[in-house]
Simulated scan of single mutants.
Amino acid sequence: MEEYDMNKGVKWVIGIGLVAVVAGGFYAIKQHDKVESKTVTVGIVGDSDRELWEYVKKDAKKDYNVDVKLKTFTDYVQPNKALADGDIDLNAFQTVNYFETQNKNYNGKLLDIGKTYVTPIRLYSDKFKKLGDLPKGATISIPNDPSNAQRALDLLEKAGLLKYNHSVKLPGAKDVTDNPKNIKIKEVQSDQSVSTLKSVDAAVINTNYALDAKLNVDKALYVESVDQAHKGYFNLIATRKGSENKQAYQDVVKAYQTEKTVKHMKDLYGNAEQPAWGKYAE
Score class of each variant (00 low, 15 high):
274 Q>K: 06
81 K>W: 10
30 K>M: 11
13 V>Y: 09
85 D>Q: 09
209 Y>R: 03
224 E>G: 02
178 D>K: 03
231 K>H: 10
32 H>R: 07
71 K>E: 05
2 E>W: 10
47 D>N: 03
214 K>G: 15
142 I>V: 08
219 K>L: 01
150 Q>N: 04
67 D>G: 10
199 S>A: 01
50 R>D: 04
241 K>A: 15
158 K>V: 10
282 E>A: 03
13 V>I: 04
168 V>W: 14
58 K>P: 08
197 L>Q: 02
59 D>Y: 05
163 K>P: 11
193 S>V: 13
246 K>M: 14
198 K>T: 07
61 K>Q: 15
269 Y>P: 00
25 G>D: 10
223 V>R: 00
150 Q>V: 07
87 D>C: 06
120 P>Y: 04
98 Y>A: 04
76 Y>Q: 12
5 D>A: 13
123 L>N: 02
70 L>K: 06
248 A>V: 14
173 A>K: 04
127 K>R: 02
26 F>W: 10
122 R>Y: 09
49 D>K: 08
153 L>Q: 07
51 E>V: 01
12 W>L: 09
84 A>I: 08
93 F>L: 01
223 V>T: 02
239 T>S: 14
27 Y>K: 08
231 K>C: 03
210 A>C: 12
92 A>F: 07
210 A>M: 12
178 D>N: 05
70 L>G: 13
166 H>S: 14
67 D>M: 13
173 A>Q: 01
89 D>N: 13
58 K>G: 11
247 Q>P: 08
16 I>L: 07
5 D>W: 15
278 G>H: 14
181 K>I: 02
61 K>V: 06
182 N>R: 01
253 V>G: 11
171 P>Q: 07
206 N>W: 09
88 I>Q: 03
240 R>V: 12
87 D>A: 15
276 A>H: 12
220 A>K: 05
175 D>H: 06
101 T>M: 08
34 K>L: 15
251 D>L: 13
280 Y>S: 08
23 A>F: 01
176 V>N: 06
107 N>E: 02
63 D>S: 09
271 N>C: 14
74 T>V: 08
118 V>Q: 11
154 D>M: 13
233 Y>V: 01
95 T>H: 01
10 V>S: 03
74 T>K: 13
